[in-house]
Structure formats: structure tokens, C-alpha cells
Amino acid sequence: MSAAGMTKRAAPVLACIGLLVVWQVASLALKNDSFPTAIGAMRAIPDILGDRESLINILASLRRMAMGFGAAVLVSIPLGLLMGRSAAIAAFFNPLLMVIYPVPKAALMPIIMLWLGVGDITKTLVIFLGVSLPVIYHSFEGAKAVEEKMLWSGAAMGLSPVQRLVRIVLPAALPEILTGCRTGLVLALITMITSEMIARQSGAGNILFNALDMGQYETVFAMIIIVGAMGICLDAIFEKVRARLVRWSEPQFDMPLSFS
């Protein structure tokens, strides 16, 4: 491997180590009870992951997240694509989405809790809402940008409107759609934790905020590390899949900006 390649590989690891060092030094300097050292927090991680109860909680969180994310993607991509290709559908949904967009989805939770209780459905629904909007938006933009002549070519080959949507608009917009999904994935994680903060009952967020209430700060920070690591892993896996799916669209020439 070339030297440049090595640095590229090592860079994220170095960044993590650097962050932990700064944390360690800062907490030693501040000597504050609610700010444990990095080493202390790391020590608490095996305790959490070794605990059956905690594992069940974390898995329950992940399950809700997967369901909310999956459902959102399944609904949002077709909707976004239809909006991108039909002015009438776009005109109908755009105002609705504009209303929902700026509202923090967690702020809707109390109402949803009133209707649906504090269980899985409510939390999954909130995740669903959080993921939907970026995915709809990016699918919409991607579908709008599909070159008209490509659709014409498909029509000339005898593709019906539905076939054109599935077999031309979808693949052509895929790079854009996947960008939306990537944002959606991170938002799913965020809304997952927030929803568990509001409706405490189970989940990773529940462990975190209970520990906070009880003043177990090392557990709190350990949970933050765990959630952060989950985010990084999910994002990395997703990025791998994405790069594989849209290899055909990646830019060919990597033009360096030459900062160095």
C-alpha cells in the first residue's frame, strides 16, 4: 500500500485516539464529578455490553430503528419519485411536507404517545417520520433531474409509465436517493435516542438517561461512546453498500484541490 493510502486508512483511527486523549486530559484538568475520564468511561463499556438486561435494551432500540428506517425508505422512495415525475403529485404533497419539515419529530411524540401509547409503535413512528423527509426530498430531486431523453428512449422500447418509473427513474436517481438514505440513517439513530428519552421504558436511550438520573456518569459517557460507535458502524456499512450500488456514477477523475 502506498504512503498516501496508509494515511487515508489510518486517519480515522488517529482522529479517534486524538479525541480520547483530549478528553482524558480535559477531564483530569477539570476534576469534575460529572465529567469522567476517557479511560473510566471506556472501562464501563464492557460492563454494559456484558449485562443481559442492557443488551436486550440495545437490541430493542436497534429493532425499532431498523423497522422505522425500513418502512420510511419503502414509503418515501416511491413517493419522492412520483413527486419528481408528476407536477400534480408534487403540488399536492409539497405543502404538506413543508409543514412537517421544520417540526422536530420528537416534539410530536407527546401527542403520538397520547394516541398510541408509549410502546414500540410510537417510537417506531417517530423514527419513521424523522427518516422520511430527507429520503423523500432526495428522491424527489433525483427523479426531477432524470434526463428526459432517457425516458423517451425507454418509452420507445415499449416501457409503460410504471416500468419507466421503476426501471429508468429509480436507477437513474439512485445516487441521489442513497444520499438521502444516508442522511436518514443518521437521523434514525438520533430520533431513536430522543424517542427513548421522552418515552422511557426500554432501549439504549433509556439506559443512558436512567444512568444520568442516578449520577452514574461513567455509564452515561460509555453509552454515548456505544451509540456513537453504532452510528459510525452503520454509516460505514451503508457507505460500502452505496458505493457498490452506484459504482457506475462515481466521478472518474479525482481532481485534487492541492491544499498541500
Binding site: M150, W152, S153, I168, P171, A172, L174, W248, S249
Partner: peptide
């Protein structure tokens, strides 16, 4: 077409 309009994928 003048613009080719190939399917890039």
C-alpha cells in the same frame, strides 16, 4: 438522440 441518452447504470 443527439444527446445519446444512454442508461448510465
Amino acid at each position: 438522440f443527439q444527446e445519446f441518452a444512454l442508461f448510465p447504470w
